[in-house]
């Protein structure tokens, strides 16, 4: 198969390379996760990848597609990696398996495979888990700084596959995330500053483990921006809008609305900013569209976090904005050279 038409040159970029770049950029966060929360995430990640391989193979065969090129495009890897970061590290094994399978089957293959899915598969899988299994999805393993130790590989495996380790119940090591605590605190009449004060961290600069994971994501994200893997418009729009909301409402009532630093460095903020909303398939593609799309997610995340039913609104915010993408693209077409608007 020779290319008939020019150009006969290429910059040697490929879908696989792009995906591997993303995977590489997620490495700092993965390492930080292992250091702070233990090996649970590694087991989850391996489970997810195994599921992905099986699901991809079965689905591609069923759909009558060439298996090898599409297996090796690595897009499924990125999907499940994004999902794994959203799942509690010691969640039961069937959570990540069903979530990954759902994400790939319903989020990708049923829409026609890579490039044809309107919704972010990882977030679709996450939303599916969040709605179907709310309890295990909110039981986060506490980081080492809180519990005093992290589980090693074998103990994590025990918890994930059997629900306990050395006869100890899972409840021993799980708790609420800072976002969750804030929410429960507010519902019990505890003001935000008090909740935050009660959980001062021993880690450098007083930042808790979740904040450090977010910082690791920022590192990976900056790397991707610099080598051109992702557009800068996504993080800028998202973080800009989220910051604006946080600053505004914190200024209005600091007792109820957390400060900017907490908003930016809690939950999946940075994961979303650099790894999830930048998925080009489901995002707006025009320069202004990217900003609008990302800013929309930022606003929605803040809204869901502050007034919605879920502690972290990233999945729903992204899925909602996914719906709006065709509309945004339609109205943000750039001015073509030589045309007045």
């Amino acid at each position: 198969m020779t290319a008939l038409s020019s150009p006969y040159a290429h910059n040697n970029q490929s879908v696989r390379k792009v995906m591997l770049q993303v995977q590489l950029a997620a490495l700092p966060a993965l390492l930080a996760h292992i250091y702070l929360f233990g090996y649970g995430i590694v087991i989850q990640w391996m489970l997810a990848v195994t599921t992905a391989i099986v699901v991809e193979y079965v689905m591609l065969t069923l759909r009558g597609r060439p298996v090898l090129p599409f297996m090796t495009d690595m897009s499924a890897l990125i999907t499940v990696t994004g999902l794994v970061f959203c799942i509690p590290p010691e969640a039961p094994w069937w959570i990540v398996v069903s979530g990954s399978a759902f994400a790939l089957i319903f989020g990708k293959h049923l829409y026609g495979g890579l490039g044809y899915n309107p919704f972010n598969p990882a977030m679709l899988g996450y939303a599916f888990l969040l709605i179907s299994f709310p309890v295990p999805m909110t039981q986060w393993t506490m980081p080492g700084e809180v519990v005093g130790y992290t589980l090693d590989f074998m103990h994590s495996a025990q918890v994930i596959f059997m629900g306990h380790f050395d006869g100890n119940s899972l409840d021993m090591i799980t708790g609420a995330t800072p976002l969750n605590e804030l929410r429960t605190g507010l519902s019990q009449g505890v003001m935000v500053p008090d909740t935050l004060r009660a959980h001062d961290s021993q880690l450098p600069w007083g930042l808790n483990s979740w904040a450090w994971i977010n910082i690791a994501f920022i590192l990976g994200g900056l790397y991707m921006i610099l080598n051109g893997t992702i557009s800068w418009q996504y993080p800028l729009g998202f973080l800009g809008a989220l910051s604006a909301m946080a600053l505004l409402f914190h200024a209005i009532d600091p007792a109820v609305y957390p400060p900017l630093s907490f908003v930016l460095l809690s939950g999946g903020t940075m994961l979303a900013a650099f790894f999830i909303i930048t998925d080009p398939v489901t995002a707006s593609t025009t320069p202004r569209g990217k900003l609008i799309y990302a800013a929309g997610i930022g606003v929605l995340v803040y809204v869901i976090r502050s007034w919605g039913a879920f502690p972290d609104g990233i999945a729903f915010a992204i899925l909602l904005m996914n719906i709006a993408v065709p509309l945004i693209d339609q109205y943000t077409q750039p001015r073509v050279f030589g045309h007045s608007r």
């Binding site: 198969m1 008939l4 038409s5 060439p66 044809y116």
Partner: peptide, 11 residues
């Protein structure tokens, strides 16, 4: 110009 052949037709 002929239309390029698509390797993968959307099903």
């Amino acid at each position: 110009w002929p239309e390029p052949q698509t390797v993968q037709e959307a099903k």
